[in-house]
């Protein structure tokens, strides 16, 4: 057990007590190594309760993004078990895995929108999991899906840009559209991999506030990685710190935790 974990012990039980409730995500013994390189994740255990907001922090290469991807099998873990929204995803067929993925919105660092398509089409894509190819383009989508996509865009304040091409948007606008696409999934949980890392500080704060606000408003479980201490402490209930592929701290988010978290931000 590391010093940081010991130091966090006083805060962690309180956090767990406060957040006790149905488990949304549980991972045990997750390990991952790419090729012959060093282990990216080693024996990682993680539990996130429904409606809880958790920030994953750590230096570059600590394993945050890999862990997030392992939870949805976007990266296959070498070992361990993952429970997402009541489903043991390691044993699922591709079809059942897709069904679980439709319930988890994932926002990436670089928005990952389809650049040549309209903003509305990109948001409609959020329904691909449940509506199939009808959601491939705003023109092929039924009116109900289009209306839902417009409503999602409205929630992120960009309904007026619906017909604009995605590659004409600013970074902040693109990330908002990515959030609207995730909302279009009607998710139970939201994952985000450094969602504001490529934005300037003002746009980053704006998008992060919108993102965590929407998650709280809808009672969604929120798990995000960040390199920003203020975002970790300001938008999460709990902070989990990764160092060299292992969890080194797991504590309730509070301003008093800041000195202990410093070492996780390189």
């Amino acid at each position: 057990m590391t010093t940081a974990t010991l130091a966090a012990d006083a805060a962690a039980p309180a956090a767990r007590k406060a957040d006790r409730g149905p488990v949304a995500i549980a991972a045990t013994g997750i390990a991952k190594r790419f090729g012959a390189g060093p282990a990216v994740l080693e024996d990682v255990d993680l539990t996130v309760h429904r409606g809880e907001a958790v920030a994953l922090i750590g230096a570059n290469g600590a394993g945050k993004s890999t862990l997030l991807r392992c939870l949805l099998r976007l990266v296959e873990p070498d070992a361990g078990e993952v429970l997402v929204l009541g489903e043991r995803i390691g044993a699922l067929s591709p079809r059942a895995l897709r069904r679980v993925r439709t319930r988890v919105g994932f926002v990436f660092q670089k928005h990952n929108l389809v650049p040549r398509l309209s903003v509305l089409s990109n948001v409609v894509h959020g329904a691909l999991g449940r509506a199939g190819l009808a959601a491939m383009h705003h023109a092929t989508a039924p009116a109900t899906l289009r209306a839902e996509a417009l409503a999602s865009l409205d929630r992120v304040g960009l309904a007026h840009l619906a017909r604009q091409r995605a590659d004409t948007l600013s970074g902040g606008q693109s990330q908002r559209v990515a959030i609207a696409r995730a909302l279009m999934q009607r998710p139970d949980a939201l994952f985000a991999d450094e969602p504001v890392a490529s934005l300037d500080p003002a746009a980053g704060e704006e998008v992060m506030t919108l993102f965590s606000g929407l998650a709280r408003e809808a009672g969604l479980t929120l798990l995000f990685t960040t390199h920003n201490m203020a975002h970790a402490l300001g938008h999460a209930d709990r902070v989990i710190g990764l160092r060299a592929g292992r969890i080194a701290i797991d504590a309730r988010a509070a301003p008093a935790l800041a000195p202990q978290l410093e070492r996780f931000f390189d």
Binding site: R99, F106, F108, P115, R181
Partner: peptide, 11 residues
């Protein structure tokens, strides 16, 4: 990137 995003949402 967009392919991973669509894969992540269950497409």
């Amino acid at each position: 990137g967009p392919q991973e995003a669509l894969s992540a949402l269950g497409a």
